[in-house]
Every structure is written in structure tokens, then in C-alpha cells.
Design a protein around this nucleic acid. Structure first.
Length: 558
RNA sequence: GCGCUCGUAGCUCAGCUGGAUAGAGCACUAGCCUCCGAAGCUAGGGGUCGCGCGUUCAAAUCGCGCCGAGCGCGCCA
């Protein structure tokens, strides 16, 4: 019997061979054989639409072509590697060829799930290549917002999924610890400190007005003495203090959210060893950095940007792009072959620029995937909660975690396509009731745990079970869904769209609840009870694996 | 003005590289626990897939043009 993981590619090759041998097919233009999972199970477990695609080339009705192909499949199947895996083949108008998997093959899927356990679904797609997901990377100018939370949830899940798909993954946080915003932050703290000492001082325009700076100012004065406010280097010292302070705040928030980075990469370290300067020299040498009107520009228009971008200002100071270019050079030089960046929606113009700079340095820009994570709107019932970062009035990730918990927060952030606006309903996320989608999946997992407990008391063992007994539509559907899990991982690794995993888990949970309602484990005849228990254990394994990848807990009871 | 994202059921959204009667949850209606967790299951109503043209055997899906929503367009980051 063919291994479940080999099945689809083998079937595709098998059909391709048959199609190529059809009279009238030009081997110089090999047709691509399309396999799909039919929407309705009545159409089989797999379907092929090649006959319709070939209809105009062969000038024959699609059904006739499908029958021709199906006849060849029937003839060659017994001697092929797929023998035994496919139970039957049918042709249906307008020209589909539908395949029904055999009971034995589906049973072998369950064996595979149980054998591999927490590794079921792990695939070799990434071939061990180094991959990096850079995400959050928020300026350390305050607590993380809800928007950062969404990036954290998505980035962490993507990293886990890429790891599962066979990449060697690092999670990295690019730490913006210098530049205009950080200077502003430092002076804002200094002002707060002055105010603490009863002096009149005003937060600079565009400065940071959040209350957390008042708290930090008190701490700064307490730790260093009041004299530090009059130190000639007060501004510098204030800046260093607050950056360090806020990084720890952010690190703690992410830790609580269940996100750990392998590396925090400080922008300031790019200055060391003249790396930044050297990078700019490299660009000059390659001809994509040119001087005009006293400033140095990146010739990004050569790579599809609508205008060139200033890298070195006419006064000699560097723009943020300079540091970003150097930083991305390190990513390539550190040997990463798949780079994923998550950015907020205000950065989308930046994607072209970044890709241009990477190409200008001679790297392969296709290795770089920049994803825009859209904002999310919070609402409480029907009431929208407005958000504004600069004014210091915004809902923080911490407040969100306090209110709805980590599991619900992470799950809700993954619930939508990442480039679509997300409406986060706090009331819904808090509800421990049936309309909350988090609990639907977790409930299935917990329910199986209880069943397994009860079954053990009844002395039902899954060890010697015969999965061939799992013949009902509900049982078959569960087996077929389990078979598909590795495909979902591959799809997600390719498209970087986490929604597929969420949707898959919802589907698997739904299929389980239906099965549970239709069939009993305890109380059935012993052989059937054992087989069904084994099926339950398999479903629990896959649910657990999926939830783990999303960073959501899989509770034994709830 | 240019660019990006989006427009599918009353609401929130799926629909993967075009495919067989357009799906799910919520809300609404009616059922299912002397029985492994009812945080569950079953059934029902509800849609000109923003509009138009084009490509195709086949378009919610691809292309073009409108209409509408959101965001971005600094020698800021």
C-alpha cells in the first residue's frame, strides 16, 4: 500500500502518464493535470478536471475524453503503485473523473497519524532551508498595541508552520533603538522628569504623551537621583534609560502572549564595524546609489518604484532606509533563504523600496515575502472603540489579554485573512458559549480526552483496533480530513495565509462533533468500540497539532 | 492625482492555482440529553457574488473600465 504522503503526487504522475499517451497530445506541451478535493463528498475523495481542459485541444466532448482516460486508469491501476488505494473511478458530466479511496488506504492514514503523533503533518517542503520571520519590530516607544498583537499572533503562527513544513526557522525582532522617534521619546521622558521636579516644561510637538512616561520618569529619578535631570548628558541618559525600560515591557508582554524571539536585532549594532557605511559603499560601487542635489539616492525606479529614495540626506544624516538596507543585507549574509516580514498597513509603499534595495545589492528578491497585516478594529457588541497611538490613548495588548485571555486573542487574530481588516468583538471573544469559535475546536479536543478516560475505565483499548471497521460516512470523512492535514501545511507554507489552518481545524472539529452525535463508542460491540476510540485518538492528535501551530492551547478539560 | 487592500445571506466572513446545485458562524424558527461533556447535533427560511464588458468548454475566482469603502503617498519611521 502506498504511503499517504506519497499518494497525491503519485496519482498526478499516474494520470499525467495516461494523458500524455492519448492520441493527439503533443508531448512538447505537456498538459498540467489538475487534482482537487470536490466540494461535495458525493463526488468522491479526489477529482480530476483534465478532460475538460483537453476538450478544445482534442476537439472532442469532455465526457468522451474522461471516459477514455478512466478506461486506461482502470486498466493500469492494478499494476501501479496506487493499487489498493483507489477503490473506484467514475466519470461524471461535464467531464470530471472522480476517485474514491479504499477503506484500507484510509485506515492506513489513521495508522500514520498514530505512529507519528505530534509530528503528524510535518513535511519536507522547506528542505531544511533557513527561514526567518521578522515581526512586531515595534519601536520601543510604548506598550504594544492591539495592532502589534495581531502581528505577533500571525508571525508566531507562521514561524511555527514554516518550521513544521521543513524550514529551519528563526523569529527575529528588529529593534529600532535610534533615530528621530527615539530622540523624541528621550526628550519626552526628560520633560516628564522636569515636571516631576515641579518645573514647567512641555512635551515637544509629536512627542509621546502617554502616562507610562510619567511612571518611568519617577523611576528614573528615584534610581539615579534628581540631579540627573540637570546632567549635561541628561537627554542621552534619559533616552538610554527609557529604551531599555520599554524593551523589557515589550518582552514581557510578548512572553505573556506566548511569543518568544530567537533574536532581538538592535539597529544600533549596524553601526559597529562600519557595517552600515560599508553597505552604502557597496551600493555606490554597484551604481545604484547616486548623488543629486547634495543627497544620495537609491535608484529604486530601476526596480519598479515610482520614484527614487533618499538614503543619505544633504546634511549627511542617514534616513531610516539606510539602516533597513544594511539590516536586510545581514539577513542574506546570515544564510536565510526564505524571509518573511510582517508590517503594518502604513508601510505598504515600503515593500517596493525594500525589494529594490535587496536587488540593488544583488540578492534574490523573490526570497523576501513582505506581508501587510491590516489593522483591527475593536468593538464591544456594536460599539466601536476608537484607537489613536500618538495621543497615548489606545488599547494595549495587555488590556486585551486581561479582558479576553491569550487563547481567544490569538485565535481571533488568526481568524481572518491577514490583509483584511479585522473586527475584533470583545464580547464575543469573552463568551464561553457556543458562538465563540475558539471553544468549538478546543471543546472537541477536551471532549475526546474525556471519552478516552471513560473508555479506559470500560477497558476499551485502541491498541489492537481494526480501522477497516470505520465505514460510516462520518468516520470516512474524519479519515479523509486527517489525510489532508499535511496538504494544508504545505499550502500555508506556500501562501503564508494562516487562515487555511484555522478553517481546517474548524472543519475537523465539526466533523468530529457530527461523528460523536451519530455513533457511540462505549456500548458498541468491542471491536467497533476499539476502532472508534482509535479514530478519536487520531482526531485529537491532529487537532492538538493544529492548535499548537496556532499558539492556542489544547485543553484536556475545560 | 497616483498606489495598495477590499466590495459574496440581516451581521461577521470563507470560497486555495478558474470547475459539478455559491458555503460557515451569528441572528431567527422548529426539533434532539433515563445514553461516552447539549460549550454539541439535526432541519428550515434568507444571496441579481458592487455594476458593465471581455477571455474561456467553464468566471465569485482571470483582464479592462466604472461605482463605493478604507489606508498610504516627506531629505518622518
Amino acid at each position: 500500500m502506498i504511503a499517504p504522503s506519497e499518494f497525491e503526487s503519485t496519482l498526478r504522475q499516474f494520470i499525467t502518464g495516461i494523458v500524455m499517451a492519448l492520441p493527439g497530445i503533443d508531448s512538447a506541451e505537456p498538459p498540467v493535470v489538475a487534482l482537487e478535493s470536490p466540494r461535495s463528498r458525493a463526488h468522491g475523495d479526489m477529482a480530476c478536471s483534465s478532460a475538460m481542459q483537453l476538450a478544445s485541444r482534442l476537439r472532442k466532448p469532455p465526457v468522451q475524453i474522461a471516459q477514455q482516460i478512466a478506461a486506461q486508469i482502470q486498466a493500469l491501476l492494478p499494476a501501479s503503485a496506487l493499487a489498493g488505494a483507489i477503490a473506484s473511478v467514475e466519470v461524471k458530466p461535464p467531464g470530471f473523473i472522480n476517485f474514491f479511496l479504499s477503506q484500507e488506504f484510509l485506515a492506513s492514514v489513521l495508522q500514520e497519524v498514530l505512529k507519528r503523533g505530534s509530528d503528524y503533518g510535518r513535511i519536507q517542503y522547506g528542505q531544511g532551508k533557513k527561514a526567518m520571520v521578522e515581526f512586531v519590530s515595534a519601536n520601543p516607544t510604548g506598550p504594544l498595541s492591539v495592532a502589534h498583537g495581531r502581528q505577533a499572533a500571525v508571525g508566531d503562527a507562521l514561524a511555527s508552520i514554516l518550521d513544521f513544513a521543513g524550514y529551519k526557522v528563526d523569529r527575529e525582532y528588529y529593534l529600532n533603538d535610534e533615530g528621530t522617534q527615539i530622540e523624541l521619546l528621550g526628550s519626552s521622558l526628560l520633560v516628564r522628569a522636569q515636571q516631576q521636579l515641579g518645573r514647567s516644561a512641555e512635551i515637544p510637538e509629536n512627542g509621546y504623551k502617554g502616562d507610562y512616561l510619567i511612571v518611568a520618569a519617577k523611576k528614573w529619578l528615584e534610581q539615579n537621583g534628581e540631579a540627573i535631570a540637570d546632567d549635561p548628558d541628561a537627554q542621552k541618559k534619559a533616552k538610554a534609560f527609557i529604551v531599555k525600560e520599554l524593551i523589557e515591557v515589550i518582552r514581557g508582554e510578548l512572553e505573556r502572549f506566548g511569543v518568544r524571539f530567537n533574536r532581538w536585532y538592535p539597529q544600533s549594532s549596524l553601526d559597529e564595524k562600519e557595517y552600515l557605511k560599508e553597505t552604502l559603499e557597496l551600493l555606490k560601487k554597484r551604481g545604484d546609489l547616486f548623488e543629486q542635489e547634495g543627497a544620495w539616492w537609491l535608484r529604486s525606479t530601476a526596480y519598479g518604484d515610482d520614484k527614487d529614495r533618499v538614503v543619505i540626506r544633504s546634511d549627511g544624516r542617514l534616513t531610516y532606509i539606510a539602516a533597513d538596507i544594511a539590516y536586510h543585507r545581514t539577513k542574506y549574509e546570515r544564510g536565510y533563504q526564505r524571509l518573511v516580514n510582517l508590517l503594518g498597513p502604513d508601510h505598504h509603499g515600503y515593500i517596493v523600496r525594500l525589494k529594490a534595495s535587496v536587488q540593488a545589492m544583488g540578492f534574490d528578491a523573490s526570497w523576501l515575502n513582505v506581508l501587510i497585516v491590516q489593522l483591527c478594529t475593536l468593538k464591544r457588541g456594536s460599539e466601536l472603540i476608537p484607537m489613536s497611538t500618538r495621543e497615548g490613548k489606545f488599547t494595549t495588548l495587555t488590556e486585551l489579554m486581561d479582558e479576553v485571555g491569550v487563547d481567544a486573542a490569538r485565535f481571533f487574530f488568526l481568524l481572518r485573512k491577514i490583509d483584511a481588516h479585522l473586527e475584533f468583538d470583545l464580547e464575543l471573544a469573552k463568551k464561553h458559549t457556543l458562538d465563540n469559535p475558539v471553544y468549538y475546536i478546543q471543546y472537541a479536543h477536551a471532549r475526546i480526552s474525556r471519552i478516552a478516560e471513560n473508555a479506559a475505565q470500560e477497558k476499551i483499548s485502541a491498541d489492537q483496533a481494526d480501522p477497516a471497521l470505520l465505514k460510516s460516512p462520518e468516520e470516512r470523512l474524519l479519515l479523509e480530513l486527517m489525510r489532508n492535514f499535511p496538504n494544508i501545511i504545505e499550502l500555508t507554507a506556500r501562501t503564508l495565509e494562516t487562515y487555511a489552518v484555522v478553517a481546517y481545524l474548524q472543519e475537523l472539529a465539526a466533523a468530529f462533533h457530527k461523528f460523536y452525535d451519530a455513533h457511540r463508542i462505549i456500548g458498541s460491540e468491542p471491536a467497533v468500540a476499539a476502532a472508534r476510540l482509535q479514530l478519536c485518538v487520531g482526531v485529537k492528535t491532529v487537532l492538538g497539532n493544529g492548535l499548537r501551530l496556532l499558539g492556542v492551547s489544547a485543553p484536556e478539560k475545560m
